[in-house]
Structures are given as structure tokens and as C-alpha cells.
Amino acid sequence: MDVKELIKELSSLDGPSGYEKAVLELIEKKIEPLVDRVWYNKVGTLIAEKKGTGSGRLGIFAHADEVGYVVTKLEKGLFARLETIGGVDPKVIFAQRVKIYTAKGIAKGIVGVLPPHLQKEEHRSKVPSFDKIFVDLSCSELGEYVSVGDICVVDVKPVELNGKLCGKAMDNRAGCASLILAAQLLRNIRNYQDVYFVFSSQEEVTGLGAVSIAYELRLDRAIVVDVTHGDVKIPQFVQIKTGEGPALCVGPVIDKEFYSKLYQTAQRNNVKIQIEPAPGRSGTDTDEVQLSGTGVRTTLVSIPLMYMHTPVEVVDPRDVEETARLLALATTIE
């Protein structure tokens, strides 16, 4: 499997929280030949199980959903209003092409913007809220079929920038790709623990997909794979860099013993890693998975990513490959 093609393919599919079906179907197709069995749970999470040679139950999680929009109101003249699914900065949505999933198929739209010639001081001095933002549907044959409740995503195709990949939903399709690649590596590396690859739903809104599975599977350990802010200065924090390998999280939501085993595994096998402190909640599925059932020993592995939750998220495919290697090696931990 070519890592770049895999990430691009996953990024191109649309799957805002609760509507992950197309993404999960592709993942299922890719991972099924690599594992013992696959199934979905009640809340739309996909699980792929690979039995180990020893004992213990390890869940490896990546959320399959992405941030997006939902149509909340229709206006005269084929215009629609949106609200967000997950956290989106309104500053990144102007003059974007969007796709709206209607009952009759995909309608095309454009997020409108006033031209500079018609802007006044009031328009320039503050960022419009989503109440002010509108989608022009007049450029679509299906525009008249758009209804309140239809799901909307930005219409962008991934591009390559000097070997890095740029597009929407790299958060967390990059993570999903690393799980698929890890499953592939398990053809050569025998896993000691039983491994459950979990592609969870609705991380961007509540994280319920991951929590439900952690509970059902009675896991001993979990590795959550998500993305983290790369190549940007965050006051008081070490700067995580793209291209330097995955970031291992340290903090209260991380199990110290499992972390140190994972760290040593990385060291022994020359896996390139970075360390990222999370003094409280991590903002990922890890936070709740740790609290599932009688408690799960959790770690968090994050792929560095630039411009999170924008249509131009950037990941370095080498980081995705390095993450896959770390995950495959982690299954041998006793």
C-alpha cells in the first residue's frame, strides 16, 4: 500500500461526525484481508480484530470522523445557512466550494462573500459568525433539493507540497492510515496481545464511538492515535515538528507504565518520536477511554499536523509511516 495514495484516498472521502459511513467502508475494505474479523458496533464504530500469540487485549484507536457543517436554514433565492459539526473557525470558510449531501445526491455550493467594493467598515472590523455566513446553491441542479439537516463539507482535493500532503480531514485520516499500515506490518511482526483496531465515530463532537467500544471490549490497554499541532508556536509548550515522527503524550490521561514500555520500544527500534506534554485533558478520545469500565491503561500517539480544522491541513507521510511502525511494535509488548 502506497502511504501517500492511502492518505489522499481517505482525505478525499467525506465523513463528518455521525456520517462516517463512506470512510469506514473504505477502511473495512482495506483492513479486512489483514485481520481475523471485522464488525461494527451499535454507534457506527468499525472494529478489526487480530488475535495474538500471548495474552492481553490492546485497542488501537483512530477516529474516522471529520469536522463539517449541517444546513440549518434555507433562504429565498437558493441560499442556505450552516452550523458547524465540531469546532470550525469561520475565518477559513469564505469563498470555498462546498458539497451538500441531499436525498437526491450531492448538491454544489459556494460560501458567499461580499466583494471589497461593497464592504463597509462593519464588515471589515469583525469576523462574521455562522449566522452571517451563507451558501449559494444556485450553481447546482440539486440546489432546490437541499433540506435542513443535510450534511455539508468543503469540496477540496488533497495536493502534495514537496512531499507533504495537504487537504481536508487529515485530522484524522492520517491516523486511520497509520492503523491500516500497522495492520499490514502485522503480517511480519507477530502480535503478542490480541489487537483491536478501532475506527471510531463522532470524536469531533463527543467521542462516544471510542468510549462505547472501550467498554464493550474490556480492554487492558489502549493506544489512541490522533493528530497534534505541528510547526506552530504555542506559548509555554515545546514545538512539535512535522517530519520528526509521532508525538508521545505525557500527562494524567496517560498510563505511566504503558507509556514507558512504549517509549522503550520506540528507542530500541529507532522509531523517531517526540514528547508532548498534556497537563490536563488531551482533547482526544484518550480522555474518556481511560475512564471506561474499570479503567484502561492508555497512551496517546499524535501525528504532527499543520492548520488543524482548516481545508488545508498538512501532514508529512513519513510521520504516518513512523506511527504505523510504532503501533505494530507496540503489539509485541507483553
Binding site: 477559513v92 482548516t310 498538512v314
Partner: peptide
């Protein structure tokens, strides 16, 4: 207007692609 620049792919010199991003809302 600056507001239409963010989140776009641009082409430099007719060939090199680039992205205009901005730091995450988080």
C-alpha cells in the same frame, strides 16, 4: 480581502503549489 485568503491552495509562478493556512481554532 484577507478573509478570502485563508484555507486556499495557490499556485506560485505558474507551477509551485502552496497552502495559505492559519493556526488551528484550538
Amino acid at each position: 480581502e484577507t478573509q478570502v485568503m485563508v484555507g486556499k491552495i495557490v499556485r506560485i509562478n505558474g507551477q509551485t503549489l502552496g497552502a495559505i493556512g492559519y493556526k488551528a481554532i484550538h
